[in-house]
Amino acid sequence: MDILQLTSRKRETYHVQLTYSLLWESALGIAAITNSKLLQTLERSEKYWDEIKNSITDELLAHLNFVEQNNTWKSLLQILHQRKFADLSEFTTYVNTIDEMELRFICLPFIGIDYQIYRERAAQGEKSSVEKLVQATADNP
């Protein structure tokens, strides 16, 4: 059997690195417990997650409800992608010292190279770019 090579691009090599962090585990746990669509795909039943929610303090539950309503768990993951944080203190220092516009840019999800200019402008506070990003994510969920 003959194989035709129809592209002129060189073969690409990918390198995968796995790392472990309690910060990642925590962010993913927050994502799991605050995303009802995701709960159905996990090994544990929804009852398990309900029991956890019933066992935590009202203050923590209020924070988790805020995360759920605003999808801020996604922002946690975006920030964690920026660098390897040794611990929570280093993470909070980074968040508290980074430029506000850069933090907004990091927290806005990448939805494609064609939308990067809107992401940059949205981070600067341009409302029409925010609307463009919202529309783009609504069109391609």
Rank of each mutant, 00 (worst) to 15 (best):
L77D: 07
T57S: 15
H63D: 03
N54P: 02
L22I: 09
R9W: 14
S55T: 07
L38V: 06
E131P: 07
E68H: 00
L64Q: 00
K53M: 00
D114I: 04
L4H: 15
R119Q: 14
E68M: 01
T72V: 15
T93Q: 15
L42W: 13
N35Q: 02
W73C: 07
M1C: 09
T41D: 05
I98K: 00
S26F: 03
D87R: 02
R121T: 00
S26V: 12
T41E: 15
N96S: 10
I106P: 01
I33D: 00
E90H: 07
R121L: 06
D114Y: 14
E46D: 05
T72E: 09
A62I: 14
R11K: 13
L77H: 08
N35T: 03
T93I: 09
E68K: 02
L77Q: 03
A32T: 09
K132L: 04
L88P: 06
E43S: 11
L60Y: 00
L61N: 04
K10R: 05
E68R: 02
S26Y: 04
E90N: 02
S45F: 09
S75F: 09
I56K: 04
L23T: 04
D99V: 08
I56T: 02
N71A: 09
L88A: 12
E46G: 14
F110Y: 15
E126L: 15
I52H: 04
E126C: 01
S128T: 11
F91G: 14
T93Y: 15
H63P: 01
R121K: 13
E25K: 04
A32I: 02
D114C: 03
L23N: 12
N65D: 01
V16F: 09
W24R: 07
L6W: 09
G125N: 00
L42E: 15
F66R: 02
S21T: 04
N71M: 01
W73G: 03
K84V: 05
R11S: 13
R44V: 01
Y118G: 03
Y115I: 02
S128R: 10
L4S: 11
Q82Y: 04
T13R: 13
L28A: 11
Q17F: 13
N35D: 14
A32L: 11
N70M: 05
W49S: 08
F66I: 06
N70V: 11
S8G: 12
I52D: 01
T13D: 07
P109I: 03
A138M: 15
L133I: 08
K74C: 08
Y118S: 15
K53S: 00
V130C: 13
F66S: 08
Y48I: 04
R121D: 12
K84Q: 15
E51P: 12
Q135K: 15
I113L: 11
L88I: 09
D2K: 12
S128L: 14
T41Q: 12
E46N: 13
K53G: 02
S129P: 03
L23I: 08
K37I: 00
F110N: 10
S26M: 12
